[in-house]
Amino acid sequence: MAGFDESRPIFLQLAEMLEDGIISGAFPEEGQIPSITEYSAALKINPATALKGINLLVEDGLVYKKRGVGMFVSTGAKEKLLHKRRENFYVNLARPTAQEARALGLSLEELQKMMERGYKDGDRA
């Protein structure tokens, strides 16, 4: 399955994987997510690492534990995540992109045109 990137902690990567799953609908709200052992076995990672990754989502209120049953996706988790990801998108991608565009001497209009092109290319990809 997923190969992990050595340069970043595995538990963060696992948390992202889970978030991706919630956003894509692979883990629907109020649906159960795999257990620590299942993650640990499937991804060949230490159970403590798996727990740490999942706990990140628990802390954010995206996932909750039902005693003796397992872990479930909270209602509203997807919306919350999309909101968070959009914020991150601005900070991590949009703003640096704009700054880089400015450094390269692109005008705002030119940048907008490029973004339009990129957005449309997304259809074909």
Binding site: T37, A41, N46, P47
Partner: peptide, 13 residues
């Protein structure tokens, strides 16, 4: 690969 999975499944609890 099988071994690492099984190790986590049976001894990782």
């Amino acid at each position: 690969d099988m071994f690492y999975r099984l190790l986590m499944e049976h001894c990782g609890g």
